[in-house]
Simulated assay, not measured.
Amino acid sequence: MVTDLPFDGVVFDLDGTLIDSVPDLALALNALMDEEGLAHLRPDQVPAMVGQGARILVSKAMAATGRPIGAGADETARLERLHDRFVALYEAKPLVGTRPYDGAEDLLRALRDAGIRLGICTNKPQGPTEGVVKALGLDGLFDAVIGAGLIPERKPHPRPLLLALERMGVAPGRAAMVGDTPYDVDAAHAAGVAVVMVDFGYSPVPPAEAGADRLISRLADVPAALAALGETRKRA
């Protein structure tokens, strides 16, 4: 049971925080590579590419397979074509191997039952985000779902997180974020939001070096981390 937490709302990143989506991201990327006549990515290459949105994911994938995106209008158009095709391939098969991490649904329901408002703020495109959350049966747990494309900015810019909080009706000083990358940490700090980082996600840097307020290894540890943050605030 979750009780007496010092926050009114908690915003979660999605990929690498609540769900392990690398299997299906890799599947879609390799389908794109097939269409482009390029070698497949190894599954262990993909996690470090995730977190900054689909365009950067595709750009990193192309660089890893020897066909980097260059400068100029033609290359910009090429990236847009590859991005749009990747998103279509991913949306067609988003849940072949994707699963929630252990304890994800239990945590969300416990927080919800405790009166905590919940949100998602992710750099995954809005359409796939809503589709995956709904397909996993988690959509009814969130007061706001903010993915890439709703506004021009993406994490680490704070605006997507602030938009999630606005839709949740929660002030930044009464909110916490849970994520897995430095983009989550930087967005939270810029928004004036406390941040907990999981160490099992897709961070491109060692999680202990990302600057989160708390670092945890299990989603079940989120309530204790939030309570500890509250105690720290009381002493400040």
Rank of each mutant, 00 (worst) to 15 (best):
E35P: 04
R78A: 14
R159N: 08
A175W: 09
A236T: 12
P128A: 08
T76H: 08
R78H: 13
I69P: 08
R112E: 09
A188P: 10
A71C: 00
F200M: 08
L38K: 12
A88T: 15
R112V: 00
L14Q: 02
A188D: 07
L108T: 04
A135I: 02
E153H: 11
I151N: 04
V10P: 02
K234F: 04
L32D: 01
F7E: 04
R167P: 00
V58L: 04
G37Y: 08
A224H: 03
I56A: 07
P206V: 03
P6R: 07
Y90G: 09
A175C: 10
G173K: 12
C121H: 07
R233P: 00
L226V: 04
E80I: 11
P156H: 04
A187Y: 13
M177Y: 02
K155A: 04
G51W: 01
D199G: 10
H40N: 06
V2D: 10
I56Y: 03
E105M: 12
A110V: 02
H157P: 02
I120R: 09
N123R: 04
A104E: 01
H157T: 03
K93D: 11
T98I: 10
I116D: 03
L161D: 03
D34E: 14
L165C: 10
H189V: 12
D15Q: 04
A31D: 14
G131H: 09
D4W: 04
A236K: 10
V22R: 01
G70R: 14
A135W: 05
A175I: 09
G137D: 07
H83R: 09
I69G: 08
D143A: 15
V145R: 11
A64R: 14
R109K: 14
D24M: 06
K124D: 02
E231I: 00
V96P: 00
R81T: 07
R85L: 05
G51D: 06
T129F: 03
A77K: 12
P6T: 11
V222Q: 05
P94I: 05
A39S: 14
V132P: 02
Q52P: 00
S217V: 10
A71F: 07
I56T: 12
V133H: 08
H83S: 00
Q45L: 06
E130A: 11
R67W: 13
A92L: 07
V170Y: 12
V87A: 05
L163V: 14
G37I: 11
E80M: 10
M168C: 02
A104F: 05
P160E: 10
D24L: 10
A194R: 15
R174K: 15
G131Q: 15
T232N: 01
L89M: 06
A135Y: 10
H83I: 00
L89C: 06
V132K: 05
V170L: 12
D13Q: 06
G37F: 08
G70N: 09
R235Q: 11
P6I: 05
D186V: 13
F12T: 04
P128S: 13
P128Q: 14
D84H: 13
S21I: 13
A194M: 11
D74K: 12
A92K: 09
R112K: 15
A191H: 08
N123C: 08
Q126Y: 04
D13S: 03
G147H: 09
